[in-house]
Amino acid sequence: MSDWEDLAGYVASLPPEEQASFSRHAGMDLTGGQEAAARTLRAYAAGNPGVSPSSFLSSVCSQAAFACDTGMARRAGEAALQLAQSGEDRQLAHVALAQLHFQNRRDKGELDAFERHCLEAVRLGHAGTFCYERLTTLYEYRGQTGKAREICSRAIEVLEGAGDTSSADRFRRRLERFSARGGR
């Protein structure tokens, strides 16, 4: 997939019940075949020039995950990763998938997938706080203070670079608490 037309083809290739589910989570009717979906997506893209097909799919992933439509969320998130052409698109797709896996974190495989997607979003420099907060808490819970400190330091670097000094300060205070407890 490379653009909105390819996304329309992807949606049209889904079985009718999945097209309806995708449409619900996308907030627009994308049923009725590839041409109808392409027209709707082109109109959406014209009105939202800052949105890429990949970021659109990441949003569908997040909406489906919120609605506990895990299968659709997983498919949309994986498609978002495949379609991602920029670092920002990859960051967003990994965060959307991390949010999906976080919901089922009591399952070891889901927790591992959550951690993997968060670490990739962090590596790519995502400037949202979700992954930094959850990873720091996870590592702190596991007693992996060194890893928790690394995530806090990375959060401070990225968030300050993005101009989010308030969030960066929260991570700075968290680092200070680690130091006050002797790194434990």
Rank of each mutant, 00 (worst) to 15 (best):
residue 23 S to I: 09
residue 26 A to F: 04
residue 26 A to T: 00
residue 28 M to H: 07
residue 30 L to V: 04
residue 30 L to M: 10
residue 32 G to S: 06
residue 34 Q to A: 14
residue 35 E to T: 11
residue 38 A to M: 07
residue 42 R to E: 14
residue 42 R to P: 08
residue 44 Y to K: 05
residue 44 Y to T: 05
residue 45 A to M: 10
residue 45 A to L: 07
residue 46 A to E: 13
residue 48 N to D: 14
residue 48 N to Y: 13
residue 50 G to A: 06
residue 54 S to W: 08
residue 55 S to D: 09
residue 57 L to S: 00
residue 58 S to K: 13
residue 59 S to N: 15
residue 61 C to A: 10
residue 65 A to R: 04
residue 65 A to K: 01
residue 67 A to D: 12
residue 68 C to E: 14
residue 70 T to F: 15
residue 72 M to T: 11
residue 73 A to V: 11
residue 74 R to A: 08
residue 75 R to C: 09
residue 78 E to W: 10
residue 79 A to S: 08
residue 81 L to F: 13
residue 83 L to V: 13
residue 83 L to P: 07
residue 87 G to S: 06
residue 88 E to M: 14
residue 88 E to I: 13
residue 92 L to F: 11
residue 94 H to T: 02
residue 94 H to Y: 03
residue 95 V to C: 00
residue 95 V to I: 00
residue 95 V to L: 00
residue 96 A to H: 02
residue 96 A to S: 03
residue 98 A to L: 06
residue 100 L to S: 01
residue 102 F to R: 08
residue 104 N to K: 12
residue 108 K to E: 14
residue 110 E to T: 07
residue 111 L to W: 03
residue 118 C to I: 09
residue 122 V to Q: 01
residue 137 T to R: 15
residue 138 L to I: 00
residue 138 L to E: 02
residue 142 R to N: 01
residue 142 R to P: 00
residue 145 T to W: 06
residue 146 G to C: 06
residue 146 G to T: 03
residue 147 K to F: 15
